[in-house]
Every structure is written in structure tokens, then in C-alpha cells.
């Protein structure tokens, strides 16, 4: 316990009265000296914090919302990508099945008339061999024609050649030919040349065509005379 008397006596005694007055405690004065909490500034501070906090909350929810929307969009896009990927996988698989060699050969057998046989090397010729082929085919053609026919063809070729020669001789003296005949002679020479060419390239056909012409003439005459076209009828 504190001994008050002891403490009171310990105070200095000179100018006691004055000191007492001086030291007279004014409680109000002292109370005022106690630092009061700055209520206004703290309210300001905390309300600011609260606003920030609320703003933060709002911001978080807004961001979250936005993120969710974005995620939804991403999800949808991913889903559509997956669907496309799946379809692509299916498409590739279908393509593999349809284009499998087995399927193609089956379809070829079903729908194509051609029998796809591989070429042998002998069936492929270089461009240089062209002349050789032409010559050899001519030789082959010649072989197929009988001797009788050969003689006929030779005769025909000779006839044509003499005809052309005569025409050419005529054409070599243009002053002796009237102007209007000049072109006709030239045309005739050209026609004879073509006939000769045909005789060389396919003598059998040329002969047959003349034969056919003869046959037609005979048939016409027969009809005119009232003879049966087919013998025996």
C-alpha cells in the first residue's frame, strides 16, 4: 500500500500556497489533454476499405462471370472442334474402307467392263520406233493380200500413175489449156493423188470399194431389166 502521508510530506514546502494554486489540478484540462481517437479519419479509412472491398467483390464476381462466359464459349468451341475431329476421323476411316484395294477391285469388277491387265514391256514402244511400226504393219498388210489381188492393185496403181502423168503433162503447158479448165485439172490431179495414196495405204479397201461400186451398178441394171437381185428368187 502506498503511504499517502509520506508522499504528501515529501512535497516541497516553500510557496506552498502558491504551488497549491498552481498545481491545482483542473480535471477538464487534463481530460482534454488525453488524445482522443480520430473517429473521422478512421471512418474515412475503413469506409474506403469497405468500398474497396465491395468493389473487389463486385470485380471478382464480374471477372468470374466473364470468365465463365469465356469458358462456356471455349467449351462450345472445343465441343464443335471435337465433333469436327470425330467427323474427320470417321471420314478418314470411311475413305480408307472405300479406297481399300479390295473394295476398288470389287467395284472395278462390278462396274467396269475393261479387264485391267498390266502392260508388258513389248507392248510399249518408244517414239523412235514409230516408223518401224508403220513399215512393219504395211509389210503385214501386204502379206495378207493374195497374189491375184496384188496384181490387180499393181495394175490399178499403174493406171492411176499414167492418169496423173497425163494430167500433169496437160498442166505443164498452161498456155494450151483454157483458163476455166485449169482449176478443174488441178483438182483432178489432187483427187488422183489421194486415190493413189489410198491404194498404197489400204489397197484391199480401195479394191473392195471399186468392187462394191461395180456390184451396185450391176444390181441397178438387173432391177432395170427385171432380173432378180438375189439369184434363185
Amino acid at each position: 500500500m502506498i503511504n499517502q502521508d509520506k508522499w504528501v510530506a515529501s512535497l516541497p514546502k516553500n510557496n506552498n500556497q502558491f504551488n497549491e494554486e498552481i498545481n491545482q489540478l483542473d480535471p477538464n484540462k487534463w481530460v482534454d489533454t488525453i488524445s482522443k481517437p480520430n473517429a473521422f479519419s478512421s471512418i474515412k479509412k475503413y469506409s474506403l476499405t469497405a468500398i474497396l472491398f465491395v468493389c473487389g467483390l463486385l470485380l471478382v464476381s464480374a471477372i468470374k462471370n466473364e470468365t465463365r462466359n469465356l469458358q462456356k464459349e471455349i467449351n462450345n468451341l472445343e465441343a464443335s472442334i471435337n465433333v469436327l475431329n470425330f467427323n474427320l476421323d470417321q471420314g478418314i476411316l470411311d475413305n480408307e474402307v472405300i479406297t481399300s484395294p479390295e473394295n476398288i477391285s470389287q467395284l472395278a469388277k462390278k462396274f467396269l467392263d475393261n479387264d485391267f491387265a498390266p502392260y508388258k514391256k513389248s507392248q510399249i514402244r518408244h517414239l523412235n520406233d514409230k516408223e518401224e511400226i508403220i513399215i512393219s504393219t504395211n509389210e503385214k498388210k501386204d502379206k495378207n493380200i493374195s497374189k491375184k489381188m496384188k496384181l490387180k492393185i499393181a495394175k490399178k496403181i499403174k493406171e492411176k500413175k499414167t492418169e496423173i502423168k497425163k494430167l500433169q503433162e496437160l498442166y505443164s503447158k498452161p498456155e494450151s489449156i483454157p483458163g476455166e479448165l485449169k482449176t478443174q485439172v488441178a483438182k483432178k490431179i489432187e483427187a488422183k493423188k489421194i486415190e493413189l495414196k489410198n491404194l498404197y495405204s489400204s489397197p484391199k479397201d480401195a479394191l473392195l470399194s471399186t468392187k462394191a461400186q461395180k456390184w451396185v451398178v450391176v444390181q441397178v441394171v438387173k432391177v432395170f431389166l427385171g432380173m432378180p437381185v438375189v439369184p434363185g428368187k
Binding site: 467449351n75 472445343e78 465441343a79 471435337n82 465433333v83 470425330f86 476411316l93 480408307e96 479406297t99 481399300s100
Partner: peptide
Amino acid sequence: YNNSPNKKFISERRNIIDRNGSVLAT
């Protein structure tokens, strides 16, 4: 989002292809 109804088709084994790229196993 594994629970998504359109989840990605996961190939668990690698494809096998021939020398021309034709799929032999998928």
C-alpha cells in the same frame, strides 16, 4: 471438362499405317 457430352475422342493406341500412309489400324 471431361464430363462434357461432346468430350474429345481419345485414341488410346497409335494408328498403324503402311508405307503409303494408308491406315491399317485405328
